[in-house]
Amino acid sequence: MSDTAAHRLLLVHAHPDDESIGQGATMAKYVAEGRGVTLVTCTAGEMGEILVPELEHLAADKEDGLGAHRKGELAAAMAELGVTDHRFLGGFGTYRDSGMKWHEDGHAVAADEVHENAFWHADLTEAANHLVTVIREVRPQVLVTYDEFGGYGHPDHIQAHRVAMYAAQLAAVPSYRRDLGDAWDIAKIYWSAMSASRIREGLKRLRDAGDTTTFEGMDPDHLPPFFLRDEDITAEVDAGDYTEQKMAALTAHATQITTDGPFFALSNNEGSWIWGRELFRLVKGTPGPVGDNGWESDLFAGVPAG
């Protein structure tokens, strides 16, 4: 990240690929505009499923080499987005992917067995201190992470939320851990958001395009509660011009994401609408000017440069 970038964004994510799915277009847009973008990834995603048959030997119950492989995928994805400052919380291998299972209600929960070094078991203050160091070094005006449910309940997403929010508080206290750098108060904090109305419309488009398997069983009229009402969303970054970079980043995460199915075929036709408009929920700070839809269009809106 450039030391001279007037605006600086910090994103805190749980696993490699989460960043490209959630804010890949926004990241590419801000890099292209000369803004600083720093990504902190909390685990290497060691427990992820493997969609590439010839790499199944890397699974956690076999060679357990998926984390190192996904580190390379993340680097390739960041190259596609133009992000040069990407780090693992506490350094690569400090925290392990906790894994998950699906609850009967349709959201993720902790797996029956969790590794002793799993991020879910991390000491909150210890993990937050790793992030405090980054915050005080980078001095971001904007932080993006998950909501308190981690989007869909994944324990590592929930823990990433806890660590990010706690670290943001600690980093702002001048007398706290002076050895970690000078205090820095992040002006605006956003949680990533998903719009219920857009999911409904998107499901209809998918079905009309012949995709009956993506989000199979999801009823557009009875969506899970982690999809938000539009009135609870506060910002939309229109980064449609960077959809191609986002898709390339998603493709780089080959063990986790396949881009040749109907879901991505649809996105190629309407990529700007589906992938290039990313939503956020302001939870700290003063909102800047809003558009006709009542949402900010820039996460840095109202934030002085410097």
Rank of each mutant, 00 (worst) to 15 (best):
E113Y: 10
E113Q: 10
H115A: 15
N117S: 11
A118G: 03
A118Y: 01
W120T: 13
W120A: 15
H121C: 08
H121E: 15
A122V: 14
A122Y: 03
D123L: 02
D123F: 01
L124Q: 13
T125M: 08
E126V: 13
E126I: 07
A127K: 01
H130A: 12
V132Q: 00
V132W: 01
R136C: 10
R136S: 12
E137V: 10
Q141M: 07
Q141T: 12
L143I: 08
V144F: 02
T145L: 00
D147F: 04
D147M: 04
D147R: 04
G150F: 14
G150M: 14
Y152P: 01
Y152Q: 02
D156T: 08
H157F: 08
H157N: 05
Q159I: 11
Q159K: 14
V163G: 00
A167K: 01
Q169K: 08
Q169H: 05
A171C: 07
A171Q: 11
A172D: 15
Y176F: 14
L180M: 12
G181H: 06
A183E: 10
W184H: 14
W184A: 07
D185T: 05
I186C: 02
I186N: 03
A187M: 13
I189A: 11
Y190P: 10
A193C: 05
A193P: 13
M194V: 01
S195P: 05
S195M: 06
S195F: 02
E201W: 15
E201C: 06
E201Q: 10
L203D: 10
L203G: 08
K204A: 11
R205Y: 15
L206M: 13
D208V: 00
A209V: 02
G210K: 03
G210R: 03
D211L: 10
T212R: 06
T213G: 04
F215V: 00
F215Y: 14
G217S: 11
P220H: 12
H222A: 13
L223M: 10
P224D: 05
P225Q: 11
F226P: 04
L228V: 03
R229G: 09
D230K: 03
E231T: 03
D232A: 06
T234Y: 02
A235Y: 00
A235L: 06
A235E: 06
V237G: 05
D238V: 12
